[in-house]
């Protein structure tokens, strides 16, 4: 199929210097595809948030990005601890990030809220002790 593009990224745990590599690569490819700047911006911001979350909370994981002429679908899957209270986590400012993460300027409690804000659709599947899969969609 030449009208869909599937990209896969392994996200390594605890490596802040590499966090953002995947979203940066996707951003570059979207620009090469001629995707609208607004959609590129939304994907870049939402995916970077998600990528950082996977590094901080979930020992990394895998991101699959499916690009079609209609939409960009990002599936962020990890086998981390799971989110105990999704509703609470979705609230702006709620954070469980440890101090060393906050000292790096992360952990402001805006991760999930921002991911929702910058995407057209977002769903969270999570199970404690099993992992979390977040699917985000940005329309073209």
């Amino acid at each position: 199929m030449d009208d869909a593009i599937v990209l896969k990224y392994e996200i390594s745990p605890d490596d802040f210097t590499r966090a953002g590599e995947a979203s940066s690569d996707v951003k570059g490819k979207l620009k090469q595809l001629g995707v609208s700047p607004e959609a590129v911006r939304k994907v870049a911001i939402a995916m970077y948030e998600g990528e950082i979350n996977m590094v901080i909370h979930a020992n990394g994981g895998e991101i699959t990005v499916e690009i079609t002429p209609v939409e960009i679908r990002m599936i962020l899957a990890d086998v981390g601890p799971g989110i105990p209270d999704v509703e609470k986590a979705m609230k702006a400012g709620y954070s469980t990030a440890p101090d060393e993460v906050r000292s790096l300027g992360f952990g402001a409690g805006m991760g999930l809220p921002n991911m929702k804000k910058y995407t057209d659709d977002m769903s969270i599947e999570t199970k404690l002790g099993v992992g979390t899969t977040i699917t985000m969609i940005v329309k073209m």
Partner: peptide
């Protein structure tokens, strides 16, 4: 830096 003249070609 677009790869093609339109989105389908770029894909």
């Amino acid at each position: 830096f677009s790869l093609g003249g339109n989105m389908m070609e770029s894909f």
